[in-house]
Nucleic acid binder design. Structure first.
Lengths: 198, 198
DNA sequence: TCTTTTACGTTGCAGTTGCAATGTAAAAGC
DNA sequence: GCTTTTACATTGCAACTGCAACGTAAAAGA
C-alpha cells in the first residue's frame, strides 16, 4: 500500500471543507465536487473516503457537534475548579453564542444542519442527545445554587433562550449587546439580581 | 387573451406547492419541476409566473411570512377586546409554537428559510422587520402590565425563548408539554406566578 | 373580422449532480 | 522480487438542474 494514511484525519479535512462551503453558501451548495475543490483535493479522493454523499454529510455533522462540545468543555475548563454556577453558565453561554465572525460561521452551519435534520428524522437523534446532555449539565448547576426554582424547568427555559438568541443573532435580528443583556436578565431571573459576591 | 387569470392567486398556488415540498424534503429539494409537479401544473407555467427560481423563492418566503402574521392576528382577534396581557401573550405563543403536525410542517419551512436567509443577507431584512414588529407588540403588552421589569428586555427574552422552544420542538428535543411548561414559567417570571384572576 | 396579447405546454440545451468504473502508482507483506 | 492491497486520479454516465425558445390556443380590443 502507499504511504499509510490516517483515515480519520482525511475525513476531517474533507468535512472541514464542507463546513466552509456550507458556512458561506449553505448546505444546498454542498456537492462532492464543490467540497473537493474547497478541500483542494480531487473528487475521486472524496469518494474514496465517503462512499456516498449522505455518509459525508453525517460525518460532517458529527465533526460539527464534536467541535461544539470541545468549545463547551474548554470554556468550562478555563474557569478553574468549583466556579460559581452562575458564572459558569454565563461563561458557557457566551462561548456558545455566535458573537464573533468565526462562531457566526459555525452557527450558520449548525442552523443549516438543524433544518437538514428537521426533514431527515433518522439523523436528528445525535442532536437530541446533545441537548439532553446540556440540559442535564445546566439542571445540575441550577439545582446546586438555587432551590427556590424548579431546576429542570429553569434549565429548559435557559437553553431555549440560548438557542433563540443564537438564531436571532445569526439572522441579525438582535445585536450582540441586546442578546447578552437578555441572557444576563434571564440569569438574574433564575439566580436573583447580580452575582452574589465580588 | 385567454380567460383572465389572477396572477397573484396562481403565484400563491405555486408557492403553496413549494411550501409542501420544502416541508417534507427541505429547500434543497425545491426545483422548478419538483414544485410544478407538486402543484399539478407544467414547469412552463411556473416559468410563466416566475422569471427565475430566486423570484419564486422570494415570493414563497413572503407567503410564509404573510400566513404567519395572519395566524398571529387571528389569535389576537379571538381573545376579544382588552384581554389581559398575560393571557394574550400565552394565546399568541401557543398558536406560534409548532405543536400540531400542520404548524410543525410550517415550522420546518420557516426554519429552512431561516437557514436560507442566513447565507443570503439580502433576503433577510423582511424577517428582521417581522421580529421588530413582534418585539414592539410584546414590549407594549409588558409595559402596560408590569412596570417592575424592563419591558424591552423582558420582551427580547420572551421572544428568544419562543424561538428556541420552536426550534427544539421541531427537532424533537423538547416535548410539547415541557415546551409549554417552559413558556408558562417564563411568563411567571415576568408577570409573577399564576394569572391574576379567574 | 382581424390583430394582438395573454396563458400556457413542449422541447431543448448547457451545466451540474451523485456515483460507478477503471486506471495507476506505491508500499506493505510474503 | 512478486503479489496484493491501498490511495488516489480520471473518465463516463444517466439523471437532474435552471432557463431560453418556440409553439399554440383563446379571448380581448380594434
Amino acid at each position: 500500500m502507499p504511504k499509510r494514511v490516517d483515515h480519520d484525519q482525511r475525513r476531517t479535512l474533507i468535512a472541514d471543507a464542507l463546513v466552509r462551503v456550507a458556512a458561506d453558501q449553505g448546505l444546498e451548495a454542498v456537492s462532492l465536487r464543490h467540497v473537493a475543490t474547497a478541500a483542494g483535493v480531487s473528487s475521486g479522493m472524496v469518494q474514496h473516503y465517503f462512499r456516498t454523499k449522505d455518509e459525508m454529510m453525517r460525518f460532517a455533522l458529527a465533526v460539527v457537534r464534536e467541535r461544539h462540545q470541545l468549545r463547551v468543555s474548554e470554556a468550562v475548563g478555563r474557569l478553574g475548579p468549583d466556579p460559581a454556577p452562575r458564572d459558569l453558565l454565563r461563561a458557557l453561554f457566551l462561548t456558545v453564542l455566535p458573537l464573533d465572525p468565526e462562531s457566526r460561521a459555525y452557527g450558520r452551519v449548525g442552523l443549516a444542519f438543524l433544518a437538514y435534520t428537521a426533514v431527515r428524522p433518522e439523523a436528528a437523534e445525535p442532536l437530541r442527545a446533545d441537548t439532553r446532555d446540556m440540559l442535564d449539565l445546566v439542571t445540575g448547576l441550577i439545582r446546586g445554587a438555587n432551590r427556590a426554582v424548579d431546576p429542570a424547568g429553569a434549565a429548559a427555559g435557559l437553553l431555549a433562550v440560548l438557542e433563540g438568541l443564537g438564531v436571532y443573532l445569526l439572522g441579525g435580528h438582535y445585536s450582540a449587546e441586546s442578546a447578552v443583556a437578555a441572557l444576563e436578565a434571564q440569569l438574574d431571573m433564575i439566580f436573583g439580581p447580580q452575582s452574589p459576591e465580588k
